[in-house]
Design a binder for these strands. Structure first.
Length: 391
DNA sequence: TTGGAGTCAATAAT
DNA sequence: ATTATTGACTCCAA
């Protein structure tokens, strides 16, 4: 059931309340015997396995290589992220963009998070992937043209699209320096359309500074920040949640892009991603911890690049979080062909690295990361019970 | 309840 | 037009 692409069972676009308008709206509501969250997307035929099952059995995939390849294929064929995401991954454009630009290493992904990558892998192996997507594209365009045509020729006056009329006179300048918030919607219907908070650069700066000192502010601190910045408490909380998780991700990436093999086939497009220039405030303090060069990270994820191969097994181990042997041999058959990617790599033994001294933002990130660790230690210390750390 | 992981979806930026 | 960014949500586990 459920065929993304097209459909649009959008019966009346009105259900305002924060209802869970999320994934897979058309949840069948008749079978007492519920099934798994099911398989939202078609999932290329293949041995009637749900993606979930495939994800569970999937061997390690090199997310970086996969996204790189997907981006290449998409751009080479003028296929957009929206179409790809919507029809192949079941994700929105923004999510796809994020995923392709900053894939997390496989071992850091949850089962759920691996799903999109397995789908991408499957897609890459489909000989007709591009062709199919292009067909979808054509269909969409056709439908669009039709819609448009009918509304223009037939019953011109009637607006088929419903809303979307109205132009609002936004006298407001994009410069909402301080004191903003509490915007009201004035349009006809009192829909109270959340204005979407947009934090001013200064506010972000302030929050980042606060983060540097304390990645995990106490509710009290949060309240203070909120009132000082004139923001809702929830906004500050959300900001910290988001910032932490995004910083974390950056660290993963940083960890990944080491081991540039230089030569090799296609020249990868290394994006330096310069960090923003922090401003001011020299009060760095912290002095204490230093020198401790995190030279040895857990397991530096492999990094393929080029066209190497080898299905080397993890030499890694150690520091595994939730123990997960997961050594399975399955005669999966079908899976083998699907997951044998001539890629992957070795467990590059990252040569310590002579980090470049400069880069204050990176330094700050590390400092914050240490605070992060300290926070956890303190938290855990409050509880008895032996422990095993993993940072 | 708190924090993390994934996403959505509005809107910025190209 | 597309793609990138990001505040807010949902779901989960501890």
């Amino acid at each position: 059931p459920l065929s993304s692409a097209e459909e649009s069972v959008k019966s009346l676009g009105d259900q305002g309340s924060g209802g869970g308008v999320s994934q897979v709206p058309p949840r069948e509501l008749s079978e007492p015997s519920e099934s798994q969250p099911g398989t939202p997307l078609p999932v290329p035929g293949h041995s009637g396995l749900s993606i979930q099952e495939m994800v569970a059995m999937s061997p390690e995939l090199d997310t970086y290589v996969i996204t790189k390849k997907v981006k290449e294929v998409l751009t080479d064929n003028n296929l957009g992220q929206r179409l790809f995401g919507e029809t192949i991954l079941g994700l929105t454009q923004g999510s796809v963009s994020d995923l392709l630009a900053r894939p997390k290493p496989w071992h850091k992904l949850s089962l759920k998070g691996r799903e999109p990558f397995v789908r991408m892998q499957l897609w890459l192996q489909d000989p007709r992937n591009v062709e199919k997507l292009m067909d979808m594209k054509r269909m969409e365009k056709k439908a669009y043209m039709k819609r448009r045509h009918s509304s223009v020729s037939e019953s011109q006056t009637v607006d088929s699209g419903g809303l979307s009329g109205g132009d609002f006179s936004q006298g407001g300048s994009p410069q909402h320096g301080l004191g903003h918030h509490l915007h009201q919607q004035q349009p006809p219907q009192q829909h109270l359309k959340k204005p979407r908070v947009v934090l001013a650069p200064e506010e972000k700066e302030a929050l980042k500074r606060a983060y540097q000192q304390k990645p995990y502010p106490s509710p009290k601190t949060i309240e203070e920040l909120a009132s000082q910045l004139n923001l809702k408490t929830s906004t500050v909380i959300n900001w910290f949640h988001n910032y932490r998780s995004r910083i974390r991700r950056e660290l993963f990436i940083e960890e990944i892009q080491r081991g540039e093999g230089g030569e090799g086939g296609s020249p990868s497009t290394r994006a330096g991603k310069a960090s923003e220039g922090d401003s001011c405030d020299g009060t760095e303090s912290d002095g204490t911890v230093e020198s401790t060069r995190p030279s040895q990270d857990p397991h530096p994820p492999s990094e393929g690049e080029g066209g190497s191969d080898h299905r080397d097994e993890g030499t890694t181990s150690a520091t595994s979080s939730t123990a997960a042997g997961t050594s399975s041999h399955h005669k999966g058959g079908a899976l083998d062909s699907l997951f044998s990617f001539p890629e992957s790599g070795h467990v590059s033994s990252v040569a310590t690295t002579a980090r470049n001294p400069r880069d204050s933002s990176l330094r700050k990130k590390k400092a914050a990361n240490l605070n992060n660790i300290i926070h956890r230690l303190e938290k855990a210390a409050s509880k008895d019970e032996p422990h095993e750390w993993e940072f």
